[in-house]
């Protein structure tokens, strides 16, 4: 396995990252570094810059200035050195509908260069309760089943860095809770680093050890959920999110 960093650089390092689409500033000079084996939530309202930030973490969007390094590799120039160590899951990006679950996992397993692919597919299928669905077309599954398949696709290469965009959106509370448990398990057993974008604050409170809150492309808070709740004198993260969303973007206290 290629190690751009010799295994020493932080999984993610973002410096002075800025992205402009024409005159619109989507991300405005943000910087952060993630430690291995942690779950960090990227929060913010619509248009805050979460999706653009995640896209730049994956090398899908080229920054206007600043840089993103994943395992030491510059994602604007050398992302192919580390992409096999990452993966991504979002209910808003489908896998091919006509392919069966097994065919999809086989295709993505090959794209990620997974060894013993058959064994690995059996393993993730068992872990995510997909064994009985393996030969059914993805397009004929329920929303909850599709989410589990997307998660299986994201875990098929046992990524060291997992990027999740609202992983439990459109799931019923029971299934969502089950998915969160699987994600916690995965992080623990694989010492994986997880970046989570979510609008579900209870999910963030449960999973994330750190919250990076974005507004208009800038980081306005970066601390643990508990610290954030305490600083605002609220009882949960949802109330904090609402308080922040209803304040001006230039609040000096938040930027401290």
């Amino acid at each position: 396995m290629y190690q751009a960093d010799g295994g020493r650089a932080p999984p993610v390092e973002v410096r002075a990252l800025r992205k402009m689409y024409g005159e619109v500033v989507a991300v405005d000079g943000i910087g952060f570094s993630l430690q291995a084996g942690t779950i960090t939530a990227l929060l913010g309202g619509n248009g805050a810059g979460k999706t653009t930030t995640i896209a730049m973490l994956m090398g899908l969007v080229v920054p206007t200035s600043g840089d993103v390094r994943v395992f030491g590799a510059d994602m604007a120039r050398e992302r192919h050195k580390v992409l096999h160590r990452m993966n991504f899951e979002s209910p808003y990006v489908d896998v091919p509908m006509r392919l069966t679950v097994r065919q999809n996992l086989e295709v993505f397993g090959r794209l990620y260069g997974v060894r013993d692919l058959r064994g690995r597919i059996g393993e993730v299928a068992q872990e995510l309760r997909l064994t009985d669905l393996l030969d059914r077309p993805y397009g004929k599954l329920s929303a909850g089943q599709k989410t589990r398949v997307s998660l299986a696709k994201a875990l098929v290469n046992a990524p060291e860095l997992l990027l999740l965009d609202e992983p439990t959106a459109s799931l019923d509370p029971d299934t969502a809770d089950w998915v969160r448990s699987r994600l916690e398990d995965y992080r623990q057993t694989h010492a994986a680093t997880v970046v989570l974008a979510s609008h579900n604050m209870s999910e963030v409170e449960r999973l994330a050890g750190r919250v990076i809150m974005l507004e208009k492309g800038r980081i306005i808070a970066d601390e643990t959920p508990q610290a954030l709740i305490g600083r605002f004198g609220r009882t949960n993260l949802e109330e904090v999110f609402l308080a922040i969303a209803r304040r001006g973007a230039d609040d000096a206290e938040l930027r401290s």
Binding site: L60, M86, F88, D94, P96, L111, G113, K153
Partner: peptide, 9 residues
């Protein structure tokens, strides 16, 4: 599916 492909190796 393009997003998945473009962020794969």
């Amino acid at each position: 599916n393009l997003g998945h492909l473009m962020m794969s190796p």
